[in-house]
């Protein structure tokens, strides 16, 4: 990749900041990808001011190949594909933040909304509100769902006990 790898040297502080930013973005995108479209649509409609934006990559639906590993941990193999929709937007305002949306399924509007919230969340004056009104409640909801499911599965755990045998 010599022709295009233009690695900039980062100071330790910059690198740490970048890692934290990356982790926050991963969490944000994972949560948004799991949100119902209607929830995102409502959150978008309820924003005090909605910025203008343009599509850098119009929303499209395609396939992503999913892979497994032999034995769960061994060599990779192609298992089958999954529908994925994606979209890249740029906000019109001075920050011109670029937002990306990659979501499971064929809902292109949802990919667009995820990209919009991803872009908005990069702006300080929106970040706190999005966290409070959208991301935190989503996370709580998902955690609750997971916990309930786990508790139902845990209730099917087998408690082995050994019967007293007949010989003395």
């Amino acid at each position: 990749m010599s022709p295009i790898a233009q690695t900039e040297t980062l100071s330790a502080g910059q690198a740490a900041g970048q890692a934290a930013g990356q982790a926050a973005r991963k969490r944000r995108l994972a949560l948004l990808a799991r949100a119902e479209r209607a929830r995102l649509e409502t959150a978008w409609a309820e924003l005090p001011q909605r910025p203008g934006y343009r599509m850098l990559k119009p929303a499209e639906t395609g396939l992503v190949m999913l892979r497994g590993r032999a034995g769960g941990v061994g060599q990779r193999f192609n298992l089958g594909e999954m529908t994925v929709s994606r979209c890249v937007v740029v906000l019109d305002d001075e920050g011109a933040s670029m937002g990306v949306g990659y979501v499971q399924g064929r809902d292109r509007r949802k990919a667009e909304l995820v990209a919009l919230f991803d872009a908005l969340a990069q702006q300080d004056h929106h970040a706190a509100q999005i966290e409070r009104d959208l991301l935190a409640p989503l996370e709580q909801h998902l955690n609750r769902q997971r916990a309930v499911r786990a508790a139902k599965v845990a209730a099917t755990k087998v408690d082995f006990f050994t019967m007293v045998r007949g010989e003395d």
Binding site: M1, A5, L56, V90
Partner: peptide
Amino acid sequence: SQDLPISQA
């Protein structure tokens, strides 16, 4: 190896 972040539009 192909993936480069596209930070600028």
